[in-house]
Structures are given as C-alpha cells and as structure tokens.
Design a protein around this nucleic acid. Structure first.
Lengths: 149, 149
DNA sequence: GTTCCTGCAAAAGCTTTGCAGAAGA
DNA sequence: TCTTCTGCAAAGCTTTTGCAGGAAC
C-alpha cells in the first residue's frame, strides 16, 4: 500500500496522518512478521532520530482502538502487532523462533458452547517445528547414532 | 485429582513433590480459568505465609518444561497458565474480562501451508462479548434511547 | 488561541537472576 | 555431606503515566 493510501485510511478513522503514524502503519504493512514494539522502533528511529518509543506505543494503541491493527496473542512477555487482515493463523517455531502465517478456514470447526457469544476476533497460535528445523533435527539424530558420515 | 495422585504425577517427571509444588499443581487443576502467577500466589500465600512469588515462577517453569502445564497465548502482558489438557479454545470477553473454555474440533479446518510442519501445540483464542455482557449492552442501548424505564 | 501530538523522564508492573540459608536424600 | 529447594533482594525489561514543549488547525 502506498503512503498516500495509508494516509487516507487513517483519515477515514479520524487519525491525523502525521509522519510517525504513516511510517508505523507502512512498516506494519511491509513487515507481516508480527513485529514487536522494539523492532518497529529500532527500524524507524534510523530515519527519525528523535522518535521515541512512547510515540510507537501511543500510535499502536491508537491504531488498535481504531481497528487498524491488532495485537496478536502470544506466549511471550512482549507485545506483537499485525496490520489487521482477515482471520489467519500463526505458527511459531519452537526451535528458531520464526513466526509463519498460514491460512485457516474454520467454517467447519465446531465451536461448542459459544452459541450466544459475539466473536470479534480469532487468534490461532500453533507451535512446533518448522520444516527446516524439523529436518535438521532428524539429521542430527541420525548423525548422533552414526548412521551418516 | 487428589493430592496423592498429583504427587505421583510429579514423581513420574522426576519432580520432587514438595508442598508448594503440590499446591500449585492442585490449584491449577481446580481453577481452570487460566490463572496468572499473581492469582496463584495470592491464593496460596494464605496457607503458606512464607511462600514467595519466585517459587511460583520456578514451579511453573519446571512444570511447563515437564509438559505438565502450559502457558496459554494471550494478548496481555501477564502470563496465564493452564494444567495441560487436550486442545481446547479460550474465549475472552472484552467487556468483563472473564475467560471461557470451549471445545473446538479442528479436523475439518484446512491448515493451508503447514504440510511439513510439526504441530505440537494449538492455542485458539477468541475475543468478543460473552452472552451476559452482550445482553446488558443491548439493554443499555435501549435504556439510553428511552425505550425502557 | 486552542487542541492535538511528540518525547523525555519517571514510575509501574511482570519476570528473571544471584545468592544464602533451609530442607531433604 | 551433598544436592535440591526456597525466598529475599536486586536487577532487567516492557509498558504506562505525567508533563512540557512544539506542531497543527
């Protein structure tokens, strides 16, 4: 998304498109790897030397309230953010820590016991091993047993 | 689960069943509402006045490593724990903050793009309004508009 | 001129670490 | 005795708050 389009999106939500806000939103659109506040800050402070983390916090809270981004569920102590898009799942590799997106369709899922609930947000977090770490793990095991050279 | 059975479960994992450990595990079995460390501590310190939060942290980390409990994914800054049971979903009410469990069957879910991943853990977190808050919200709206007395 | 935005500094809250004394094997 | 466990105190990190200067309208 172009910077101008982002500005218009912000204006639609009555958010003045200041430069820091534009850049935070642009960063989230370009980096779909669920960055932390610190990651966003460290990247943007390079071009905005006076940027403070408080502004990043303020901006993300503002965006979240407006429904433009969401804080994704995780098992960590640090918040991670995501430019809001339709429901999708996150897979976190326990070995290398990389976060993967995957599409998930839950129409067929039986959500027993939620008959009268109003569902506004679905967070799906899987954990395990990504293909790369899984393979290297298997190789390592074989090597340990002397099966390979 | 009885305290003795919990002790045996700990021994199976080579964890000495000290009193603090027994009580933390027992608390998790009785309170399936995904308590925070602070909630566990505040409850247990009443019967163990010398208990420290460090011990609760140590104990939970030990249990998690042994696969007895898991830290559930959330959008908060505070860790929440769960005695490990089979996959189920969590619903958090945005209004009253209560966490609900629901059963979810994902056999039919299409998990596109995870063909070669090893899935070890699934966290499903929904957010929205629980029936009670949803209804009170509707009522409030009507009252505000003068529809009710 | 008034409101909104930014950013520094301090405070707050959760978690981890270091260490020493106590308890258990 | 030797290892393990507990808990105090301090440190570390992330996040929030208060406030003042500056920018935008």
């Amino acid at each position: 998304m172009k910077r101008k389009a982002i500005g218009e999106q912000l204006l639609q939500k009555d958010i003045r498109p200041s430069f820091p806000r534009l850049r935070v939103m642009e960063y989230l659109f370009k980096n779909r790897n669920h960055p932390t506040v610190d990651e966003i800050y460290r990247e943007l402070v390079q071009e905005m030397p006076t940027l403070s983390k408080t502004t990043v916090y303020n901006t993300l809270a503002l965006f979240e309230e407006a429904g433009l981004v969401r804080r994704v569920a995780s098992s960590e102590n640090e918040a991670r953010y995501d430019a809001f898009i339709e429901d999708h799942g996150h897979f976190r590799c326990e070995s290398c820590g990389v976060l993967y997106d995957f599409t998930i369709r839950l129409e067929k899922a039986e959500e027993e016991g939620l008959d009268n609930f109003e569902i506004r947000k679905r967070d799906i977090l899987y954990q395990g091993l990504c293909p790369r770490c899984r393979n290297s793990g298997i190789k390592k095991l074989i090597i340990d047993k002397g099966g390979y050279r």
